[in-house]
Computed example of a mutant assay.
Amino acid sequence: MSAKPFSSVWTRERKGPRDQGLSRDQIVRAAMELLDADGLDALSMRKLGAHLGAGATSLYWHVANKDELLELVMDEVYAKVVIPEDADWYNAATAFAYGMRGAVSQHPWSVTLIGVLPSLGPNALTAAERLMGAFSSAGFDGVDVDYAVAAVVSYTLGATVPEVSYLNAVAQAGTDVVGMQALMGPIIEEIGAGYPSLMARYDASAITMTDPLTARRFAFDFGLAALLDGLAARIPGNRTKDRRITREAEVHGDT
């Protein structure tokens, strides 16, 4: 089977409005309005045209298909990930992590597009370049730059995507996080009866943190701080921990 040819909206020349028609920015804004209101499954070129009061010709003048439209709206999500141009590695990584978490949380439909559509738009590439540049300036070298960036991106999305997916499921169930917690509590107690250590931790967490969303924010803060502390230990000139890990690997025959 031959591979499907890859195409991207970013490889095509941007066109202006056709015959006093809609601009690309108008189309993207309207698409995001529909997505934020009704989710990804509700978006179609027909519905978008009706929302804008325009025919299909005005839409297809700017995008060849729905996938190209989604590339554009996803880059608008990345527009919320603002990394200052002169930020050091720690502040750049922090800005990316909180910016990406906030953007995905604000636009929960984007969860199912991350990793599916290529991030080739100017906002996504600007964020990537600034994050990579900050790590390079800190002293990370060669492939270590890629690994450091990947660690920050992977942690951010790994912690955020399941949370947003859960919130999507809660919304679809017609309740909120507190209501879902109340519904799940008795089930967890019943099923977890044979796991006393887990249940003791669950009960303690329920007592000390009554707001589930706040607990998730604290958990994100803790994980990000731990990750950045680990990256700081790997900056050239501060590699004692790295050398110890290497020696331990040699002792155990892992290298």
Rank of each mutant, 00 (worst) to 15 (best):
V251L: 10
Y155L: 12
H252I: 11
A64M: 09
R239H: 13
L40K: 06
S8H: 01
P5Q: 13
A151H: 04
V145T: 04
R239T: 15
E13H: 05
G133P: 01
K241M: 14
I188W: 02
D36H: 03
L48T: 00
N123P: 12
A225N: 15
K241I: 12
A182R: 09
L40Y: 08
V153P: 01
G174L: 01
G179T: 12
M100R: 03
I83G: 02
T11W: 01
L117A: 01
S197F: 08
Q106G: 12
D36P: 01
P84D: 11
M74I: 10
D141Q: 09
A159V: 14
Y195D: 15
A3R: 10
P118E: 13
A3L: 13
G16I: 01
G121S: 08
P122Y: 01
V63S: 00
L167W: 08
G158N: 05
D242C: 12
W89R: 06
L40W: 04
P186A: 10
D88K: 15
P122I: 01
Q181D: 10
I245S: 03
G102H: 10
S205A: 15
P17Q: 00
E189I: 09
A134C: 08
R217H: 14
L198H: 04
V82W: 10
T255Y: 13
T57E: 11
A56C: 03
L120S: 08
L183G: 07
A87D: 09
G102L: 08
G253C: 05
A31P: 00
F220R: 06
H252W: 12
D41M: 07
A87M: 11
L113A: 02
P118T: 10
M180Y: 13
E13S: 06
H62T: 12
E76Q: 14
A233R: 11
S8F: 01
G223S: 05
T156R: 03
M132K: 09
G194I: 11
Y98M: 07
G99I: 09
V63N: 00
S165E: 05
T126R: 03
D38E: 15
I245W: 03
T255D: 13
D36K: 02
G194R: 11
D88L: 15
T126K: 02
V170K: 08
E250V: 13
G174C: 01
P196K: 14
P162F: 03
A3H: 10
G185A: 06
D86K: 15
E129R: 08
V164T: 00
Y155H: 04
S105F: 05
E76Y: 10
A134F: 03
L59G: 02
D25I: 06
K80I: 13
P108K: 07
V178A: 11
G194L: 12
M199W: 06
L125A: 12
V77Q: 03
E71A: 04
A138P: 05
V73G: 00
Q172Y: 13
A249F: 09
V77R: 02
A95V: 02
L72Q: 05
D86C: 13
S7I: 04
S7H: 05
V28G: 01
Y195S: 15
W109M: 02
A50W: 04
L198Q: 04
S165H: 06
I114V: 13
K47L: 15
P5M: 11
A215E: 11
R247Q: 14
T214S: 08
L70E: 03
G21Y: 00
S105C: 07
L117T: 00
D88R: 15
